[in-house]
């Protein structure tokens, strides 16, 4: 079997080589467009990107429209995957403007990061960012991890904050993305720090999306990791438990910019972030999820309402 596997690998290598050679012949095709590196100088458009997350896309669209209003040319490259995909692109300087979240980005850049208040995390983030990237002043709006339960479950055990989970007397199932198991606020920490009785951890890979919410509502799980700006929390009358000990990193919206973003553009982005409140973010998300509006419509309405365009 080992030789078979070796043969397969060697063969794959040959095949890949052949494909690359062929693809090379056919270059100049429409697949190669995009990823402008900005070497063309000041005239090149700013590349604004977003995660494959509808809420992040709305923020990126707001940035784009605001920059266009200020006379900048913008190249939108939205929905480019999760952090593991776009972070290398960002570090390589292929993206000029990216909406991020201070805590999650810090943890991705430095797995040993300490956490703390929003100001502390923002300061650490600026340290951790590689050269050529800058974190602008964060917004009030945040979209952070939370431990969330149903209203019924909260009432039953009188739950208000994470520590009160110790009141729970039955072993509970926890749901969230698989990396939860490795996080400092994960199920193990809950068990060790607060004595929460945990029976099982169920990995649901939709980042607290509808599958996780449904599992919680169906009582397949009793405790879920859901983002605080998720309109599903309100729609399903869920309770996001308070976190007085700060086990979760604060995740305020922050703009990561490259050196290509000049002072004028930074000022525009600062103004947008200054206007973006926590409630705003939830209602922007709700317009996307509940009213099924597209990002450009939502962004334009919000910018108009706030006198930014």
């Amino acid at each position: 079997m080992f030789t078979a596997a070796k043969g397969r690998l060697a063969w794959s290598a040959v095949a890949v080589g052949a494909v690359v050679a062929l693809a090379g012949c056919a270059s100049g095709d429409p697949l190669d467009e995009g990823t402008s590196t900005g070497e063309e100088g000041a005239a090149a458009p700013l590349v604004v990107s977003s995660q494959a997350y509808y809420s992040n896309e709305i923020i990126a669209e707001i940035y784009s429209q605001a920059l266009e209003e200020g006379g900048y040319e913008v190249d939108r490259e939205f929905q480019i995957g999760q952090r593991e995909v776009y972070l290398p692109e960002l570090e390589a300087g292929n993206i000029d403007v990216f909406p991020e979240y201070i805590g999650s980005l810090l943890q991705a850049l430095d797995s040993e990061a300490a956490g703390g208040t929003a100001d502390e995390v923002y300061a650490d983030l600026q340290e951790a960012l590689p050269g050529g990237l800058t974190a602008l002043e964060p917004a009030d709006a945040s979209d952070q991890n939370s431990w969330t339960v149903t209203r019924e479950f909260a009432d039953k055990y009188d739950l208000t904050d994470v520590a009160s989970l110790a009141n729970v007397t039955e072993p509970i199932s926890v749901g969230g993305n698989s990396e939860l198991a490795t996080r400092p606020y994960g199920p193990e920490a809950l068990e060790a720090q607060y004595g929460v009785p945990i029976a099982e951890v169920k990995s649901i890979e939709d980042s607290g999306g509808p599958l996780t919410v449904k599992a919680l509502v169906d009582n397949d799980i009793q405790l879920a990791n859901i983002y605080t700006a998720d309109p599903n929390i309100k729609a399903n009358d869920l309770v996001a438990l308070d976190d007085p000990d700060g086990i979760f990193f604060p995740d305020n919206v922050v703009t990561i910019v490259s050196d290509k973003v000049d002072a004028g553009a930074q000022k525009i982005l600062d103004e947008v972030n200054a206007a973006l409140s926590a409630d705003d973010l939830v209602s922007l998300n709700s317009e996307s999820v509940n009213d099924q509006k597209s990002a450009d419509v939502i962004a334009e309405a919000w910018l108009t309402e706030n006198g930014l365009i």
Partner: peptide
Amino acid sequence: GAVLGIESLGLLFTDGLQRNIPG
């Protein structure tokens, strides 16, 4: 490929799932 952010009809699945838009 949508999981990697490569544009295709697959992005309609990932976006539709997050926003819970079956259509």
